[in-house]
């Protein structure tokens, strides 16, 4: 049990969620924050990073992680490029800070497992930032399923489709830094929602079909831009995830996420981004959306801080992050070998 004010460090602004977390933390009033974005120095020009980004979001700022750790944070939030999560999370754990890591937890299963191990060894808590878990629609779905309203789940279809994410942060399409293409960017959210709904069942077989037909004219894009991932779980439940950057550049919104769960006695469709007013104006001939859904970063940050104060495991855990990475890795292997990949033994849990 930790009382008093908590010190939370923000590591990197590579992921634009950093700003959401800063405002969610500041709105609590019981935490002090300090941010550092050493990667700003090498970020492409035109991307707002470093001190400027910190100033925009009202976060105190230091230039290096050394300075950040000298401040002795109780917790850190890792918002660096996917490929840097491991190094940053391990540094945070070594400094004795609890870790909230942006999704995906890592770009390889080995890295994800290393993060989980490092936090366990250091005796710090690890949480993976899957904000969709905190949408009221998903919570309502979970409650309905728990109450048996649609019987037993037999299958699911999830879609996470977005525009090619090149606008604010170009590293998303850099295979080194992102760890892959649309498969890595878009699979994990739904994989995690399914993990939460289907636990304790685990994936047994993964098949993925991908292509690079969309945006093939864009030379910056070297990875898959379209993909379908099929997962068979240990109780026979089957699910497919459409993880494609298939939202046209001209569309009214960045994209969206939907999940349909089919049960023996009914079905549930959730569309967390449905809370919106739709409009058209001269500047947006294809329309624009005024979303009025709650900011999911607030309950996510609250879960992290409350769990630290209560000394309990925050959810979604690092293990959940690891399981999502395992699905992505299996899907990547499947797409590369064009064959279904067996999970074999249940992932470590």
């Amino acid at each position: 049990m930790t009382t008093g004010r908590l010190k939370v460090g923000i590591m990197s602004f590579a992921h634009p969620h950093a700003g959401n977390y800063i405002s969610a933390l500041l709105s609590r009033g019981d935490v002090d924050i300090l941010a550092s974005d050493p990667g700003a120095a090498t970020a492409p020009s035109g991307e707002i990073r470093g001190a400027e980004y910190a100033a925009q979001h009202g976060a105190p700022y230091v230039d290096s992680y050394e300075e950040l750790f000298r401040w002795q944070p109780d917790a850190v939030i890792v918002c660096s490029e996917n490929a840097h999560h491991r190094v940053d999370a391990e540094a945070g754990a070594r400094a004795g800070a609890h870790v909230l890591c942006e999704k995906p937890l890592a770009t390889t299963v080995a890295d994800a497992r290393a993060i989980v191990d490092a936090c366990e060894e250091a005796g710090v808590l690890l949480m993976t930032a899957f904000p969709m878990r905190f949408t009221p629609m998903f919570e309502a779905a979970r409650a309905a399923i728990r109450d048996g309203r649609i019987g037993e789940i037999v299958g699911a279809t999830g879609t996470n489709n977005g525009k090619l994410p090149v606008g604010g942060r170009s590293w998303f399409v850099d295979s080194e830094l992102a760890g892959g293409g649309a498969l890595v960017d878009l699979t994990v959210h739904i994989a995690d929602l399914l993990d939460a709904v289907l636990a304790p069942e685990v994936p047994e077989l993964v098949y993925a079909a991908t292509n690079r037909i969309l945006h093939s004219e864009n030379s910056a894009v070297t990875n898959e831009t379209g993909g379908l991932v099929n997962v068979t779980y240990s109780d026979g439940t089957i699910a497919t995830i459409d993880c494609s950057w298939s939202q046209p550049d001209s569309a009214a919104s960045w994209g969206g996420l939907t999940l349909q769960l089919i049960g023996t006695e009914g079905s549930i469709d959730i569309d967390p981004f449905a809370l919106r007013v739709e409009g058209v104006d001269e500047a947006n001939a294809n329309g624009f959306w005024l979303g009025y859904g709650a900011n999911n970063s607030v309950p996510l940050i609250n879960e992290f801080i409350t769990a630290i104060r209560d000394g309990r495991q925050p959810e979604p855990s690092g293990q959940a992050g690891l399981r999502a990475v395992e699905i992505v890795a299996a899907a990547q292997e499947s797409a590369a070998t064009r064959s279904a990949v067996s999970f074999g033994e249940a992932p470590s849990d």
């Binding site: 037993e152 299958g155 439940t237 089957i238």
Partner: peptide, 14 residues
Amino acid sequence: NRSERSGAQAQTAH
């Protein structure tokens, strides 16, 4: 998936 649970008839295929 052909569910034989809960006695309800439901099957799905992808």
